[in-house]
Design a protein around this nucleic acid. Structure first.
Lengths: 226, 226
DNA sequence: TCAAAAGTGTTAAGTTTACACCCATGA
DNA sequence: TCATGGGTGTAAACTTAACACTTTTGA
């Protein structure tokens, strides 16, 4: 192949970093990893990886998520590219950040152990490598905005959940208290969050109704908005 | 330097593409370029360029904007990274898109001519190269969202503008008609959009009051929101 | 019997929308 | 004198926010 016009320009490592959000013990968590290679081995970081030669950047993010959690078909969204010259002390690396919403109990614990990865509360994160803290903050802003426009909360919960759990989740993401009655009123208007006949007896003596998200009803309800 | 852990991984060309928004003749416009090199020379595209070895990706976007318009210190915001394997038929290129808000009359026409760049209405764009149309659409969505949270409109207008101009601009960006009285009521509540003593006699017989944006008042007003 | 979480409506405040006429001026 | 764009207020609809008590049941 003849040398193209492009070939006079430099090339860079391109990486992806994943902000993997989970919800556990009433708190919004992020899956953080002890960096397994030099430089700065052992420091807390996001799970990341280099993009392969014949791999979409989006695919690389999915692959990295899969490597760490064993999960496929997970909601992921790009946060943005981070491209400062000296952001990575190892070499010039342009990194594209993605966030993922996973259910903590679905995650393969063997894989996370192998990768020295641990769930940390968003409010109690240790100092992170490079610009990873910025990435988490930007991801959290994306998630907050998303929560207002789409029902993504349930992706962090088990298929069946109580309204108290859902409210705790919203409070953890938005970082503020919500009024119980107003919250339930709002959820009630969303027909795609359906009450089941099942009762959760674990979290209270009285028992709480379990709800589920109905994707089909949701998609139908969106069609009418045009 | 010893070969680092990183060096086993591939490298890619990294480019920036700029969606340069302007406002003219009552329409939202984008500055498009006839591609000056192969492959696909002569096709309509965004203005772009490769990131240099010792240049932040953000800096590269500013440089490309400057090359085409002669403008410095312009509002720019990243839209996201585009990283499909085959998005560029020349070679593997990961591109980061940015949008800029410029005042059309500030742009250096000599530079745009030299670069075969022309303002096209957002509603009448020709087919664009690669995934550039996606980039424009994503940028427009960003701009619309931004318009609701920050007063960025005036960056597309001259320092002095009439309320009718401002309304036309909002309508062009949002793609829908706005009510004149409601619009003016809303602008009136923003103390940082100040009425001046000057009158514009060009666009109407009666003359319209000219307004200006006051950055200091804006910053003050934002402090109170915490 | 009591502690702990579940569940339930109403009212006031604020925001958004819809809507129509007079004004000033140059041609 | 008239066509053109500039300028102005009010009422209804809707949305959001504030607020307190009863229920159930396991320990």
């Amino acid at each position: 192949m003849a040398p193209s016009f492009y070939s006079q320009y430099p090339k860079f490592h391109v990486a992806v970093d994943c902000i993997i959000f989970g919800f556990d013990a009433g708190q919004l968590k992020v899956l953080l990893q002890k960096r397994p290679f030099e430089p700065r081995q052992g420091e807390w970081s996001l799970m990341g990886g280099f993009v392969k030669r014949d791999e979409d950047v989006d695919e690389a993010a999915k692959r990295v998520l899969f490597q760490l959690t064993g999960l496929h078909d997970i909601y992921m969204q790009q946060v943005g590219a981070f491209g400062s010259v000296n952001r990575d002390s190892g070499d010039r690396v342009v990194s594209v950040a993605y966030f993922a919403l996973v259910e903590v109990s679905d995650v393969n614990d063997e894989l996370t152990h192998q990768n020295s990865a641990y769930w940390e509360s968003i409010n109690e994160m240790p100092p992170l490598l490079f610009d990873h803290r910025d990435m988490v903050e930007r991801a959290l802003n994306c998630l907050r905005a998303l929560l207002h426009s789409q029902p993504v909360g349930f992706r962090l919960l088990p298929p069946l959940f109580t309204l108290s759990q859902l409210q705790q989740l919203y409070e953890a993401i938005l970082g503020k208290q919500l009024d119980k009655r107003n919250f339930r009123k709002r959820i009630n208007e969303m027909n795609y969050i359906e009450k089941t006949d099942l009762i959760d007896k674990l979290s209270s003596k009285r028992g709480a109704a379990l709800f589920q998200f109905n994707q089909q009803v949701y998609e139908q309800s969106q069609l009418f908005k045009l």
